[in-house]
Design a protein around this nucleic acid. Structure first.
Lengths: 105, 105
DNA sequence: TGCCTTTTTGGCAATATAGCCAAATACTAA
DNA sequence: TTAGTATTTGGCTATATTGCCAAAAAGGCA
């Protein structure tokens, strides 16, 4: 039931795990507007460049973004257009959470 | 840019993190068919009951499932219908990965 | 070449996650 | 009450993740 399809679930989980971080979600949302270089994202997020670089490599490894070296900068862009859809699903979970919270007051 | 909306991204990331595990993805997919008790899921996954129970509590904490105690069993069901949409997005990432892999042979 | 900028990599410490066992809890039924 | 089943919780170890600093690469330009 599960064991036969374990690899498939692991593959999906890997993609999700790559998205499941605040900075990486921000990066994804930002890349929906267009490509960005590492320095742009670093400034917007306000963490060490090395940290951002590692986040980007996580996203790249998961197949969510691709990079393009131009000059001494590296530009990243999304490979997949559907991330917004997906976020609306997450959003609906959060709305339910908010309702729960309101109900307990 | 990011710091102002940090909480929002953290909230989304928490929902994603809760989904980002093979067994929990399986549980979500299974619950799309209808409610299941802990014992059903345990048998389907083939891990210790305590492990499954903890996975379910992660999903519950994230607001993805709700539980309903009946007799000495506990039934879980999804709170949110949109998970399938979301999976098709993850799937499209995986298809690209497969293409990449084919290209490197 | 030498210097500057951009990005990646290695290494480390702190923290979080996963999964098992054992024990506790909760409910059923005799 | 006692025994049995279903589930959760505590505790433990192993493993993974995060984020910083320092250093290495890689390219641009004087």
């Amino acid at each position: 039931m599960f064991q036969q399809r374990k690899k498939q679930f692991e593959a999906r989980a890997n993609v999700l795990k790559a998205m499941a971080h605040p900075s990486r979600l921000f990066i994804i949302e930002e890349l929906e507007k267009g490509e960005r270089c590492v320095c742009d994202l670093t400034e917007m997020i306000g963490a060490d460049v090395s940290t951002i670089s590692k986040h980007l490599s996580v996203l790249k490894q998961a197949g969510i973004v691709v990079d393009d070296k131009r000059g001494n900068q590296v530009f990243y862009q999304l490979r997949v257009p559907c991330v917004l859809n997906f976020c609306s699903c997450v959003e609906s979970v959060l709305e339910l959470q908010a309702q729960d919270h309101a109900a307990t007051i």
